[in-house]
């Protein structure tokens, strides 16, 4: 049976901010212009001798060194080992932090019991663990992996605890009144409430784990971008050192953009954001 359709008010516009439009010309051009100015300035300062060329090679030399590396046989292998350790660290830290955070968030006695341990371990700078890691794990890529996971785990754990507890009481009541099982409640109510928290945590963990992987490569001498940076420095090839620093930075920007994109796609398709 069809309901009487008296003049029903027009459906309200969804209470969501409209998706940000494509960046206008200015939004792309201005940063590029700033970058060009900075590069040109650096070039000029080093060419004129204001900055010592042995520490700060002109941008053009760095670019040339980068081109040489890009054509070399080992570059992609080097980049690959850094990026693969980094991604693996994220693949371990994010699910692990989410799972442990879910348990700690839901079972308060366990959280109260473990809180001192967490509060003790969390502020330890991961780099302080490098000697320990070298002694126990050695100087392989697994050491970098451990340090990156250790550092980013906390960054996921804490938001995960907050996130699982942020489920709205009415959503939880709904789950209870329809007798959802624990698994159904976790999946349909609490995991969804966690998503915005987890997205931020993942982005934080992305930068943190890159920092840790590169640091471990520099200090421990694990093959990767960090190792190439420190190697170039020790043989006095400043241009090559900067080339690898640039590569690390670009890698960071690319992965951050990818994570952000995935996050947006997820949120748009899930209609989250109105709630956040």
């Amino acid at each position: 049976m069809v309901l009487p359709t008296l003049a029903r008010p027009a459906p309200r516009v969804p209470r969501r901010r409209p998706a940000p439009g494509r960046p206008r010309g200015g939004a792309v051009l201005l940063p590029l212009l700033a970058l060009a100015v900075a590069v040109a300035l650096q070039e000029a300062l080093t060419r004129t001798g204001v900055l010592p060329g042995s520490y700060f090679p002109p941008a053009s030399q760095t670019a040339a060194a980068l081109l040489v590396e890009l054509g070399g046989a080992t570059f992609w292998q080097t980049l690959g080992s850094t990026v693969s350790t980094w991604l693996l660290a994220l693949l371990i830290a994010v699910p692990l932090g989410t799972a442990v955070g879910t348990v700690l968030g839901l079972v308060r006695p366990v959280e109260a019991f473990l809180r001192p341990v967490v509060e003790f371990l969390r502020p330890i700078p991961s780099v302080a663990l490098i000697p320990l890691v070298v002694l126990t794990i050695g100087t392989s890529a697994r050491s970098a992996l451990f340090l990156a996971v250790f550092a980013s785990f906390w960054q996921v754990l804490v938001p995960a605890i907050a996130g699982v507890r942020s489920a709205h009481p009415i959503a939880l009541d709904t789950a209870r009144s329809y007798s959802f099982t624990l698994w159904q409640r976790l999946r349909w109510v609490q995991l969804a409430a966690m998503l915005p928290h987890l997205a931020t945590a993942t982005r934080l963990a992305t930068s943190t784990s890159l920092i840790l992987v590169v640091t471990a490569e520099i200090i421990i001498g694990i093959p990767g971008l960090g190792h190439e940076i420190t190697m170039s420095r020790s043989v006095g090839n400043a241009a090559r050192m900067y080339a690898y620093i640039v590569v690390s930075g670009v890698a960071g920007i690319v992965v951050n953009a990818v994570v952000k994109r995935l996050e947006r796609a997820l949120f748009v398709s899930h209609g989250i954001g109105a709630q956040a």
Partner: peptide
Amino acid sequence: REFAVVFQDYARSLMPWMSVARNVELPLVK
């Protein structure tokens, strides 16, 4: 089991990332 509750706050009570049909289906799944 045999009770259902309709809350005033429909926006919180429905799962916003699921389709209307899926929302209606959820309690039946078990």
